[in-house]
Design a protein around this nucleic acid. Structure first.
Lengths: 266, 266
DNA sequence: CCTTCGAGG
DNA sequence: CCTCCAAGG
């Protein structure tokens, strides 16, 4: 009955000076997926290494310094680690890492941020296509191996109107484009479950990201773009799902908040 | 009987968030020379503009964004302003500005930092040669016009052994090279007086700059490289000369400290 | 160890 | 409005 948490840290070095370490010390998660670590292994702060000394750290940095980077912290040792989504053009971009734990496969994902009408959006769309194929394959393989699977991370897509405070103003913006929402809907109709939404249907939010600009955080003008997707059998065991929104602008240590899901026994 | 202060702020924007504004509010100086302002006029923080609302600001930024920059704050309005040291190769580098106040000419200087044996040292040496000529001319002109003159700023040269804590270890380092010390000695033998040293002969320091690295500030392992030079007649009226060293590492707002000199009536 | 810039978000 | 890089100090 693992608890899985996911958070985009917006730079593990900066976050480590602002509260990530205290959060790690307090969390009861068995697995933590991190995104935007933006550091090579050798550049991880000593405080982060100390705070995660009791965990197994699987880090997939980008080849480009200071960019992207995903990781999985797990209390249990991984029995296998795989990186990338099987598309050569995204190799070395530090956007996906997958670990097999004894009874669970967990992937940490940092999906590209797009910008409608620009090459960045084309890149995001290419990633979406490749990722859909990859996740279908990995899900099938995991289930065949007797493992359930979780894909957690920053999808940079809000699935529905309830997932953005100002959805009307964002109809033409990347992260809420119709084809992006359709992509998530298709994924969730093919054996994956958006656990937070399944546990909290019919409510606005909970948001997971707030721009640093303006008063977005204080006004809770956020987006729900960080998701924990689980294979349906596992999702059915979800007992608890929360977004750990910081109490104030001053106490948060990233522009994203952790998403934490607890699964009960089979 | 003006009081003249000089300080390298290491970025007026950063310094304004750390204590420069409080220092400006408290200073009794009539003229403040600033160096390394590193900001265009349009980028000056609103707090700095508010804190200097009672002053006249003469700013000489560098053409290159975020680099160098000198300024003079004066309680009296300048009657004339001149920039540069009359050498075309240093035009637009934001290293020298000179204002005529009713009874005093004041220059704010940021001399290039060198690095022994590199092209940077050659540039510094060229600047030294051009500056010597320029200062001789300006001094003569000021005196002819019935003004005394002050040249204040970051000279990036410690004049003598008493001006560096670890002088033996710096005999081959830029800022303490024999020909740099000779340049200052020549200047001070040609009508200019190093006011702080004149008021405090025979003591070590007071230092005006401490590296941010290591424990240099806590150990007072500094350099005296910020100077107030005055024409001899004015220097003879010096009543007080201090380096306003911050009480602790945490309270300082620049790697340099203000040098403040008070002159009595003629 | 600081401050800028510029890229990226 | 952040985090990072690189250059400059």
């Amino acid at each position: 009955m693992p608890t899985v948490s996911s958070v985009n840290v917006n730079g593990v070095r900066a976050a480590s000076t602002k509260g990530l370490l205290e959060w790690l010390a307090a969390t009861e998660a068995d697995v933590v997926c991190l995104q935007e670590t933006r550091a090579l292994p050798v550049d991880l702060p000593s405080g982060f290494l100390a705070a995660t000394a009791g965990w197994h750290l699987t880090l997939e940095p980008a080849a480009a310094k200071g960019r992207n980077g995903v990781a999985v912290l797990s209390r249990e040792a991984p029995v296998a680690v795989r990186t990338g989504i099987g598309a050569a053009e995204f190799a070395g971009t530090g956007r996906y890492v997958e670990v097999d734990l004894p009874e669970l496969t967990v992937a940490s994902l940092y999906l590209p941020k797009g910008s409608a009408g620009t090459p960045k959006q084309e890149e995001k769309d290419l990633f979406l296509a490749a990722l859909a194929t990859h996740l279908a394959e990995r899900r099938e393989k995991a289930l065949a191996d007797g493992r359930e699977m979780v894909v957690a991370g920053d999808f940079n897509i809000a699935p529905a109107e309830a997932d953005i405070r100002n959805w009307k103003g964002n109809l033409a913006h990347s992260g809420f484009l119709p084809h992006e929402r359709a992509w998530i809907a298709t994924l969730c109709a093919s054996g994956w479950t958006d656990v937070v939404r399944a546990v909290h249907p019919g409510v606005d939010g909970p948001y997971t990201w707030w721009s640093y600009r303006g008063r977005a955080f204080d006004n809770d003008a956020g987006w729900r773009i960080d998701h924990v997707l689980a294979t349906s059998g596992l999702a059915a065991r979800a007992e608890h799902a929360v977004v750990e929104r910081a109490p104030s602008y001053d106490t948060r240590w990233s522009d994203h908040a952790p998403v934490t899901v607890r699964f009960g026994p089979p």
